[in-house]
């Protein structure tokens, strides 16, 4: 395109996107707990995780990070769960990593863009949930086995399942919207 995307810009628009992303993530996480999504075994699904991923892809790493980090804080605040710094940080990274790829994505419908985005989802979830899980070693003294089996795998696997399925749907919809939202 004519203009190079700077992925580190954080102006008024980015403030709004970050805040909306965070609020969306919080509301969806909270609400979908009640709407009783079709369960898959005993793993709690969190389809809302796609929000920080998508906001990262669409608006860059800072917006993605805040959507995940602040969104997770707000979701926990809403349910009265307190404040779990390392998990908040992990969720932030789930949004940040796709954001690093955002400059490479111009056409949100293109197969190549979608593949790239999917890759970033796997990396981001691995890194983010990895960090959060490992923090359990120094926060709660869990052993490696617990970290891997009880913390990392369920979080990582459900996050990428949700991300891989839902992110392309959001990207295709966004491709249609982008022409109409025009502060260019």
């Amino acid at each position: 395109m004519e203009e190079k995307k700077s992925i580190w810009k954080f102006g008024t628009r980015e403030v709004v996107y970050a805040a909306i992303g965070a609020a969306l993530y919080a509301v969806l996480t909270y609400a979908l707990n009640f709407l009783q999504l079709p369960g898959t075994g005993n793993v709690t699904m969190r389809p809302a995780i796609v929000i920080p991923m998508f906001f990262g892809i669409a608006f860059g790493p800072i917006v993605g990070f805040i959507a995940g980090f602040v969104g997770n804080i707000l979701a926990d605040l809403l349910s009265g769960y307190g404040f779990w710094f390392w998990w908040d940080l992990g969720n932030g990274i789930v949004g940040l990593l796709p954001g690093l790829f955002s400059a490479l994505i111009v056409n949100y419908r293109a197969g190549k863009s979608i593949l790239l985005a999917e890759l970033s989802v796997i990396l981001g979830s691995g890194l983010g949930m990895g960090l959060a899980s490992v923090s359990e070693r120094w926060v709660s003294g869990a052993d490696w086995n617990t970290v891997l089996v009880a913390n990392f795998l369920p979080a990582f696997l459900t996050d990428i399942a949700n991300g891989l399925v839902l992110l392309p749907l959001l990207m295709v919809a966004f491709a249609a919207v982008i022409n109409r939202s025009g502060r260019g």
Binding site: Y17, I20, L32, A58, L166, L170, A173, F174, R180
Partner: peptide, 20 residues
């Protein structure tokens, strides 16, 4: 099963982006 929430997720997200 996961894709089932698309009719909720997409309007909500796109509407939010448009109002921003």
């Amino acid at each position: 099963k996961i894709a089932r929430i698309a009719p909720l997720l997409i309007p909500l997200t796109m509407n939010a982006i448009l109002s921003s």
